[in-house]
Design a protein around this nucleic acid. Structure first.
Length: 488
RNA sequence: GGCGGCAUAGCCAAGAGGUAAGGCAGAGGUCUGCAAAACCUUUACUCCCCAGUUCGAAUCUGGGUGCCGCCUCCA
């Protein structure tokens, strides 16, 4: 089956064909490091992380570049406010970015180019645009002349006429056309500045992404993405600059844009001040819950954020975890082995789930559907588990191993259930490390003592053990096959 | 004002011509000493409204209504 992606440029789903079958090249618009990441930042990076994981599972080699816009008004302002140098702000928030994204299990890009390291490339690009007649200098500033680029507006679907009519911006009289945008800005006193043919200054917004993506990926790279607010003007301008510069088209093969996170149905934005920092959310919820929450809606749809929704996500994720723990418990249990009709049913369900999961992901990365497929498989696993625990059927270890491999593969594509898949101390029988084995041994001992109490119908003791263990994070579950403990 | 998107159960959310997935919450049940977890049953004669196309529409077309986003820094 073919992978289809929704291309913002054509506004339709297209079959994905990488330019180079050997390597998929993607450029994701990164952050401007002037504050800690908020949950709106988390969405595109979780989304692109899954896109990349899926492409890799499909057999592609992916080259992933994501920039840091480290030269920017907001950074300069933050530096002024705090009375520190701009690069202090930058390094602090880049560090924070990685800290948060690592917690969300977002794999690192192969390259994180920064604007401040690419002044030569940027200046060269601006010079070329001036030389080619696409840009002009006015008193140390350089502007891109949108009228010179015939295709201007092709990504955002607007014409220069439309924009003139609806202009809400104060027009700079020095510009030839109101929509002309700065490629280079002359330095103001006290601001970071770099040398250029037009005097000291710094790049305008937009040009850095063109310069850096072209440097590392070349023209016509496969994916370029970010939040849908970047479509205009940022990405529109990138196209104008890059295609004019290269004298070639297209700049990018597939443009993908994620929808926004809203709060109370309203866009979360810096100007509204209604945004939540990821680090604050993570005080109340595990990072994986936030990740699951983001993935439970298709990436292009808006996503409304609230504590209630996050709590719901936590319970939905719990169900997925339980299936893993059930499999791990069975794998280490001593119940009778043997194939059964039920194990065949499970094996078929796993095969089908895998097909459906890939089908969902092939359809423009439909993670919401993919998750529901996992829920379906989890249910089959639990049914199988229950039948064994009830002593109705033997345990087919070989089949279970296959099913587990499928389940783990799907979870890995979504970047979920990491602790459950790799942990050794989350359900009895599974401990591997020395310390874990000791703890597991102690837990088994406590459980044995509780079983004795239960035999004597000493419910007070039995319940006390159960309650106290729950307090330190271990849940006890009884079954006809005996009791088991599991983490959390 | 210009451009674009969305409206599916109590909540969240897939589905995009063939007769409504999944999750959460609720109700009942199985299991249990009681629980927990799991499982079973149950919750949209119907997909914002009105027309139209079609043998057939939540899905396509036209017209309404409501909400949201972009056009200004923003993921």
């Amino acid at each position: 089956m073919a992978l289809k992606v929704f291309n913002s440029l054509t506004k339709r789903k297209e079959e994905f064909r990488p330019r180079d079958p050997e390597q998929v090249k993607m450029y994701v618009c990164g952050v401007t490091p002037y504050n800690h990441p908020h949950i709106g930042n988390a969405r595109p990076f979780v989304t692109w992380d899954v896109i990349r994981r899926y492409l890799e599972h499909r057999g592609y080699t992916v080259f992933h570049v994501q920039n840091f816009t480290d030269v920017d008004d907001k950074i300069i302002n933050a530096a002024k406010t705090e009375g520190v140098s701009w690069d202090v702000i930058v390094s602090r928030y880049i560090e924070s970015y990685f800290e948060v994204m690592d917690k969300l299990n977002i794999r690192r890009a192969h390259l994180y180019p920064r604007v401040s390291d690419h002044m030569a490339e940027i200046v060269e690009m601006v010079e070329t645009l001036v030389r080619k007649g696409f840009a002009y200098e006015v008193g140390g500033d350089v502007y891109y002349s949108v009228e010179k680029f015939d295709d201007y507006g092709k990504l955002s679907g607007r014409s220069l006429e439309d924009m003139k009519a609806g202009a809400r911006v104060d027009v700079d009289e020095r510009k030839t056309h109101p929509m002309d945008f700065a490629l280079w800005k002359s330095a103001k006193p006290g601001e970071p500045a770099w040398d250029s043919p037009w005097g000291k200054g710094r790049p305008g917004w937009h040009i850095e992404c063109s310069a850096m993506s072209l440097k590392y990926l070349g023209m016509e790279f496969d994916f370029h993405g970010g939040g849908s607010d970047l479509i205009f003007p940022h990405h529109e301008n990138e196209i104008a600059q890059s295609e004019a510069y290269a004298g070639d088209s297209p700049f990018v093969r597939y443009w993908l844009h994620n929808g926004f996170i809203t709060v109370n149905e309203e866009k979360m934005s810096k100007s509204l001040g209604n945004f939540f920092l990821v680090r604050d959310i993570l005080e109340h919820f595990p990072p994986e819950v936030l990740r699951f929450f983001i993935l439970s809606t298709h990436y292009r749809s808006p996503l409304d954020f609230s504590d209630e929704r996050l709590s719901e996500s936590a319970r939905g994720l719990e169900r997925l975890k339980t299936a893993v723990l059930n499999m791990k418990y069975l794998a280490n249990s001593t119940v009778a082995r043997g194939a059964s009709e039920e194990s065949q049913v499970l094996a078929n369900a796993a095969n089908q789930a895998k097909t459906e999961f890939y089908g969902a992901m092939d359809d423009d990365f439909n993670t919401a559907l993919a998750i529901s497929v996992m829920h379906g498989l989890a249910k089959e696993i639990n049914i199988y588990y229950s039948a064994i625990m009830a002593g109705k059927i033997p345990h087919d270890a070989e089949t279970l191993a296959t099913v587990q491999a499928v389940y783990y593969e799907l979870a890995d594509i979504l970047g979920l259930l990491v602790a459950e898949r790799t942990g050794t101390l989350d359900v009895c029988g599974g401990a591997a490390g020395t310390d874990d084995q000791t703890i597991a041994g102690l837990l088994d001992l406590i459980l044995a003592i509780r079983q004795d109490a239960r035999k004597k119908k000493d419910w007070a003791t039995a319940d006390q053990i159960r309650d106290r263990l729950a307090e330190i994070g271990y849940v006890i579950e009884d079954s006809p096959q005996g009791a088991r403990w599991k983490k959390r």
